[in-house]
Protein backbone atom coordinates (compact mmCIF):
# COMPACT_ATOMS: atom_id res chain seq x y z
CA UNK A 1 0.00 0.00 0.00
CA UNK A 2 1.38 3.33 -0.97
CA UNK A 3 -0.13 6.77 -0.59
CA UNK A 4 0.78 9.95 -2.32
CA UNK A 5 1.59 13.23 -0.63
CA UNK A 6 -1.89 14.67 -1.02
CA UNK A 7 -3.50 11.66 0.66
CA UNK A 8 -0.96 11.73 3.46
CA UNK A 9 -1.62 15.38 4.21
CA UNK A 10 -5.38 14.89 4.12
CA UNK A 11 -5.23 11.96 6.51
CA UNK A 12 -2.95 13.68 9.00
CA UNK A 13 -5.23 16.73 8.86
CA UNK A 14 -8.25 14.62 9.61
CA UNK A 15 -6.50 12.87 12.47
CA UNK A 16 -5.46 16.19 13.98
CA UNK A 17 -9.00 17.54 13.75
CA UNK A 18 -10.30 14.38 15.38
CA UNK A 19 -7.77 14.64 18.19
CA UNK A 20 -8.52 18.30 18.92
CA UNK A 21 -12.27 17.73 18.69
CA UNK A 22 -12.03 14.80 21.04
CA UNK A 23 -10.08 16.84 23.57
CA UNK A 24 -12.71 19.60 23.52
CA UNK A 25 -15.47 17.05 23.95
CA UNK A 26 -13.78 15.88 27.14
CA UNK A 27 -12.52 19.13 28.64
CA UNK A 28 -14.63 21.84 27.03
CA UNK A 29 -17.87 20.78 28.60
CA UNK A 30 -16.45 20.26 32.05
CA UNK A 31 -18.01 22.79 34.37
CA UNK A 32 -15.72 25.53 35.55
CA UNK A 33 -17.66 26.42 38.68
CA UNK A 34 -18.56 23.76 41.16
CA UNK A 35 -21.19 23.52 43.90
CA UNK A 36 -23.46 26.19 42.48
CA UNK A 37 -25.98 25.55 45.25
CA UNK A 38 -23.64 26.81 47.94
CA UNK A 39 -23.60 30.33 49.28
CA UNK A 40 -21.04 32.59 50.83
CA UNK A 41 -21.66 34.74 53.86
CA UNK A 42 -19.90 37.16 56.14
CA UNK A 43 -19.39 36.55 59.82
CA UNK A 44 -22.16 37.83 62.04
CA UNK A 45 -20.19 40.45 63.92
CA UNK A 46 -18.14 41.63 60.96
CA UNK A 47 -17.45 45.35 60.73
CA UNK A 48 -18.89 46.82 57.55
CA UNK A 49 -18.23 50.13 55.84
CA UNK A 50 -18.25 51.67 52.43
CA UNK A 51 -14.96 53.47 52.84
CA UNK A 52 -12.59 52.60 55.63
CA UNK A 53 -10.29 55.43 56.64
CA UNK A 54 -7.79 56.29 59.34
CA UNK A 55 -6.82 59.46 61.15
CA UNK A 56 -3.33 59.66 62.59
CA UNK A 57 -3.34 62.00 65.56
CA UNK A 58 0.28 63.12 65.66
CA UNK A 59 -0.13 64.62 69.13
CA UNK A 60 -0.33 61.07 70.48
CA UNK A 61 2.96 60.01 68.89
CA UNK A 62 5.58 61.56 71.10
CA UNK A 63 8.09 58.96 72.12
CA UNK A 64 9.98 56.27 70.29
CA UNK A 65 7.84 53.72 72.10
CA UNK A 66 4.61 55.11 70.65
CA UNK A 67 5.82 54.28 67.17
CA UNK A 68 7.43 50.99 68.07
CA UNK A 69 4.42 49.63 69.93
CA UNK A 70 2.14 50.27 66.97
CA UNK A 71 4.55 48.82 64.45
CA UNK A 72 5.18 45.73 66.52
CA UNK A 73 1.46 45.08 66.99
CA UNK A 74 1.00 45.07 63.23
CA UNK A 75 4.14 43.25 62.21
CA UNK A 76 3.83 40.46 64.75
CA UNK A 77 0.24 39.65 63.79
CA UNK A 78 0.88 39.69 60.07
CA UNK A 79 4.10 37.71 60.19
CA UNK A 80 6.17 40.52 58.73
CA UNK A 81 9.77 39.28 58.61
CA UNK A 82 12.70 41.21 60.03
CA UNK A 83 15.65 40.94 57.64
CA UNK A 84 17.74 43.36 59.69
CA UNK A 85 18.85 45.35 56.65
CA UNK A 86 17.16 48.19 54.81
CA UNK A 87 17.53 46.69 51.35
CA UNK A 88 15.34 43.67 52.11
CA UNK A 89 13.19 45.44 54.70
CA UNK A 90 9.48 44.62 54.71
CA UNK A 91 7.21 47.22 56.26
CA UNK A 92 3.48 47.55 56.65
CA UNK A 93 3.47 50.50 59.03
CA UNK A 94 6.55 52.48 59.91
CA UNK A 95 8.05 55.76 60.99
CA UNK A 96 9.32 58.30 58.50
CA UNK A 97 10.35 61.97 58.59
CA UNK A 98 8.40 64.99 57.41
CA UNK A 99 10.16 65.32 54.08
CA UNK A 100 9.62 61.72 53.06
CA UNK A 101 6.07 61.73 54.30
CA UNK A 102 4.72 64.90 52.76
CA UNK A 103 7.07 65.40 49.86
CA UNK A 104 9.72 67.95 49.04
CA UNK A 105 9.43 71.61 48.33
CA UNK A 106 8.88 72.53 51.93
CA UNK A 107 10.04 75.65 53.63
CA UNK A 108 13.78 75.27 54.10
CA UNK A 109 13.74 77.56 57.13
CA UNK A 110 11.44 75.14 58.91
CA UNK A 111 12.79 74.44 62.34
CA UNK A 112 14.74 71.26 62.76
CA UNK A 113 12.31 69.65 65.16
CA UNK A 114 9.54 70.09 62.60
CA UNK A 115 11.60 69.12 59.60
CA UNK A 116 12.75 65.95 61.22
CA UNK A 117 9.60 65.18 63.12
CA UNK A 118 8.64 61.52 62.66
CA UNK A 119 5.31 60.47 61.22
CA UNK A 120 3.50 57.16 61.27
CA UNK A 121 3.07 56.04 57.67
CA UNK A 122 1.32 53.10 56.07
CA UNK A 123 -0.55 52.23 52.90
CA UNK A 124 -3.01 55.04 52.18
CA UNK A 125 -5.70 52.80 50.70
CA UNK A 126 -6.26 55.43 48.03
CA UNK A 127 -9.59 56.01 46.40
CA UNK A 128 -7.80 56.01 43.02
CA UNK A 129 -5.04 53.53 43.70
CA UNK A 130 -2.29 53.63 41.05
CA UNK A 131 -0.99 50.23 42.21
CA UNK A 132 -4.27 48.61 41.19
CA UNK A 133 -3.99 50.03 37.70
CA UNK A 134 -0.41 48.83 37.41
CA UNK A 135 -1.01 45.25 38.53
CA UNK A 136 -1.08 42.96 35.47
CA UNK A 137 -2.65 40.01 37.28
CA UNK A 138 -5.27 41.85 39.33
CA UNK A 139 -3.50 40.60 42.38
CA UNK A 140 -3.92 44.05 43.88
CA UNK A 141 -7.46 45.32 43.80
CA UNK A 142 -9.80 47.69 45.57
CA UNK A 143 -12.49 46.10 47.69
CA UNK A 144 -15.98 47.47 47.96
CA UNK A 145 -15.21 48.81 51.42
CA UNK A 146 -12.36 50.94 50.04
CA UNK A 147 -9.52 48.71 51.22
CA UNK A 148 -6.79 48.23 48.65
CA UNK A 149 -6.03 44.57 49.20
CA UNK A 150 -3.76 41.94 47.73
CA UNK A 151 -4.34 38.38 46.73
CA UNK A 152 -0.90 36.95 47.40
CA UNK A 153 -1.81 33.80 45.48
CA UNK A 154 -1.90 35.78 42.27
CA UNK A 155 1.14 37.99 42.75
CA UNK A 156 3.84 37.19 40.20
CA UNK A 157 6.38 39.54 41.73
CA UNK A 158 6.69 41.94 38.80
CA UNK A 159 6.81 44.91 41.22
CA UNK A 160 4.94 47.28 38.88
CA UNK A 161 2.80 48.20 41.89
CA UNK A 162 5.88 49.22 43.84
CA UNK A 163 6.91 51.54 41.04
CA UNK A 164 3.38 52.90 40.76
CA UNK A 165 2.87 53.61 44.47
CA UNK A 166 3.93 57.19 45.24
CA UNK A 167 4.09 56.46 48.96
CA UNK A 168 6.57 53.60 49.06
CA UNK A 169 3.99 51.56 50.90
CA UNK A 170 4.93 48.27 49.29
CA UNK A 171 7.74 45.87 50.01
CA UNK A 172 9.08 42.94 48.08
CA UNK A 173 10.16 39.58 49.45
CA UNK A 174 13.58 39.04 47.91
CA UNK A 175 14.10 35.99 50.11
CA UNK A 176 11.92 33.40 51.75
CA UNK A 177 10.59 35.34 54.75
CA UNK A 178 9.76 32.35 56.97
CA UNK A 179 13.18 31.97 58.60
CA UNK A 180 13.18 35.68 59.46
CA UNK A 181 9.92 35.66 61.38
CA UNK A 182 10.63 35.57 65.09
CA UNK A 183 7.38 34.00 66.15
CA UNK A 184 4.93 32.81 63.53
CA UNK A 185 1.46 34.11 64.30
CA UNK A 186 -1.37 31.75 63.35
CA UNK A 187 -3.68 34.69 62.67
CA UNK A 188 -2.39 35.48 59.20
CA UNK A 189 -0.48 33.55 56.53
CA UNK A 190 3.16 34.29 55.78
CA UNK A 191 4.39 35.09 52.30
CA UNK A 192 6.90 33.44 50.00
CA UNK A 193 9.85 34.83 48.12
CA UNK A 194 8.85 36.80 45.02
CA UNK A 195 5.69 38.32 46.44
CA UNK A 196 4.91 41.96 47.18
CA UNK A 197 3.14 42.84 50.41
CA UNK A 198 1.70 45.83 52.23
CA UNK A 199 -0.78 46.94 54.87
CA UNK A 200 -4.29 45.54 54.39
CA UNK A 201 -6.11 47.67 57.01
CA UNK A 202 -6.48 44.36 58.90
CA UNK A 203 -9.39 43.19 56.80
CA UNK A 204 -9.06 39.77 58.40
CA UNK A 205 -9.70 41.39 61.81
CA UNK A 206 -12.53 43.58 60.52
CA UNK A 207 -14.17 40.40 59.24
CA UNK A 208 -14.26 39.16 62.83
CA UNK A 209 -15.54 42.46 64.19
CA UNK A 210 -12.21 43.63 65.58
CA UNK A 211 -10.38 46.90 65.06
CA UNK A 212 -7.06 46.93 63.20
CA UNK A 213 -4.12 45.84 65.31
CA UNK A 214 -2.31 49.17 65.05
CA UNK A 215 -5.43 51.06 66.16
CA UNK A 216 -5.75 48.85 69.22
CA UNK A 217 -2.11 49.34 70.14
CA UNK A 218 -2.02 53.08 69.48
CA UNK A 219 -3.83 54.20 72.65
CA UNK A 220 -5.98 56.64 70.70
CA UNK A 221 -3.29 57.82 68.31
CA UNK A 222 -4.92 56.10 65.36
CA UNK A 223 -8.62 56.52 64.77
CA UNK A 224 -10.34 54.16 62.38
CA UNK A 225 -13.80 54.22 60.87
CA UNK A 226 -16.09 54.63 57.91
CA UNK A 227 -15.57 57.90 56.07
CA UNK A 228 -18.92 57.62 54.36
CA UNK A 229 -20.76 57.44 57.67
CA UNK A 230 -21.43 61.04 58.84
CA UNK A 231 -21.55 59.91 62.48
CA UNK A 232 -18.23 58.11 62.53
CA UNK A 233 -15.38 59.59 64.51
CA UNK A 234 -13.03 59.75 61.54
CA UNK A 235 -15.61 61.64 59.49
CA UNK A 236 -16.15 64.14 62.29
CA UNK A 237 -12.44 64.79 62.65
CA UNK A 238 -11.84 65.01 58.92
CA UNK A 239 -14.69 67.43 58.35
CA UNK A 240 -14.22 69.69 61.38
CA UNK A 241 -10.49 69.74 62.07
CA UNK A 242 -7.45 70.57 60.01
CA UNK A 243 -5.95 67.42 58.60
CA UNK A 244 -3.43 66.85 55.86
CA UNK A 245 -2.86 63.91 53.56
CA UNK A 246 0.24 62.66 51.83
CA UNK A 247 0.80 64.10 48.35
CA UNK A 248 -2.83 65.07 47.67
CA UNK A 249 -1.72 66.82 44.47
CA UNK A 250 -1.28 63.42 42.84
CA UNK A 251 -5.02 62.86 42.96
CA UNK A 252 -4.92 59.39 44.48
CA UNK A 253 -7.24 60.48 47.33
CA UNK A 254 -5.55 58.77 50.28
CA UNK A 255 -7.74 57.43 53.07
CA UNK A 256 -5.16 58.15 55.76
CA UNK A 257 -5.45 61.63 57.27
CA UNK A 258 -2.90 63.30 59.54
CA UNK A 259 -4.21 65.44 62.36
CA UNK A 260 -1.18 67.67 62.82
CA UNK A 261 -2.53 70.55 64.90
CA UNK A 262 -3.41 68.37 67.85
CA UNK A 263 -6.75 68.48 69.58
CA UNK A 264 -6.59 72.06 70.86
CA UNK A 265 -5.70 74.15 67.82
CA UNK A 266 -7.76 72.35 65.26
Amino acid sequence: MSINRRQFLRRTGMLTALGLGGAIAFTGFRKKEIAAAAEYAIEQDAELASRWAMVVDMSKFKTEDDFKRVQEACHSIHNVPDFKNTKDEIKWIWKDDYEHTFGGGQNKYLEEHLNEAPFMVLCNHCENPPCVKACPTQSTFKRRDGIVAMDFHRCIGCRFCMAACPFGARSFNFKDPRPYINEVSPEYPTRTAGVVEKCNFCYERLAKGEQPACVEASKGGLIFGDLDNPNSEVRKIVSTKFTIRRKPELGTQPSVYYLVGGDDNA
Partner: peptide, 13 residues
Protein backbone atom coordinates in the same frame (compact mmCIF):
# COMPACT_ATOMS: atom_id res chain seq x y z
CA UNK B 1 -14.78 34.97 47.93
CA UNK B 2 -12.74 35.47 51.08
CA UNK B 3 -10.03 37.74 49.72
CA UNK B 4 -12.01 39.75 47.20
CA UNK B 5 -15.54 39.83 48.58
CA UNK B 6 -14.68 39.61 52.26
CA UNK B 7 -16.99 36.66 52.72
CA UNK B 8 -15.39 34.26 55.13
CA UNK B 9 -18.19 31.80 55.77
CA UNK B 10 -19.16 29.02 53.41
CA UNK B 11 -22.75 27.77 53.51
CA UNK B 12 -22.83 24.41 51.80
CA UNK B 13 -25.63 22.87 49.79
Amino acid sequence: EAVREGKTVYVNS
